[in-house]
């Protein structure tokens, strides 16, 4: 079975057909997806701004970044399932959308980056003397912010006619 056939199978399976026939369900799921967006946005901003040296600069980077990361994960737990449901509703359409694949690729990149390199840089920052590693954490924040912005813009563009 090819990927496209899988998309077809998902989209036209009985539960998804039932879901599409309800006019309420899709916008309600999209709304919950947007709540997750706000949550992730806030958590990423608080963490990355601290790493850039703005906001909460008097607090240890590790404390701010770890607290924010918890809510980033909470946001992901809201966004990923509602995102998958939206994908399943119109899987064959998304299969052909370039922005959908751009979004998925940057999402994977940013998740890997956040939970490996960014985490390690935060852990090192707290042990090192104040000025050391500042450039590294700034760079990590810039990478994280740009990838998240790509995910968000890709997401918005998917919904356009």
């Amino acid at each position: 079975m090819s990927l496209f056939e899988l998309c077809q199978w998902i989209q036209f399976s009985p539960p998804l057909v039932a879901m599409r026939s309800s006019p309420w369900l899709f916008p309600v799921i999209a709304s919950i997806h947007l709540m997750g967006l706000a949550m992730i946005g806030g958590a990423v901003l608080v963490g990355d701004l601290r790493m850039l040296g703005f906001g909460f600069s008097r607090q240890p980077m590790g404390l701010v970044a770890r607290d924010a990361e918890r809510w980033l994960i909470a946001g992901l737990l809201v966004m990923v399932p509602t995102g998958i449901l939206q994908f399943m509703c119109f899987a064959t359409k998304y299969y052909f959308l370039k922005f959908f694949w751009v979004k998925m690729a940057s999402l994977v990149l940013v998740l890997v980056f956040t939970f490996s390199a960014r985490r390690r840089i935060v852990a090192m920052a707290d042990k090192a003397p104040a000025r050391a590693g500042r450039g590294r954490s700034r760079l990590a924040a810039v990478v994280s912010l740009s990838l998240w912005v790509t995910v968000a813009i890709g997401g918005r563009w998917i919904g356009f006619p």
């Binding site: 706000a38 958590a43 901003l45």
Partner: peptide, 9 residues
Amino acid sequence: CVFVGTAVM
């Protein structure tokens, strides 16, 4: 992300 996100935090 900026408005509601930071308000939520």
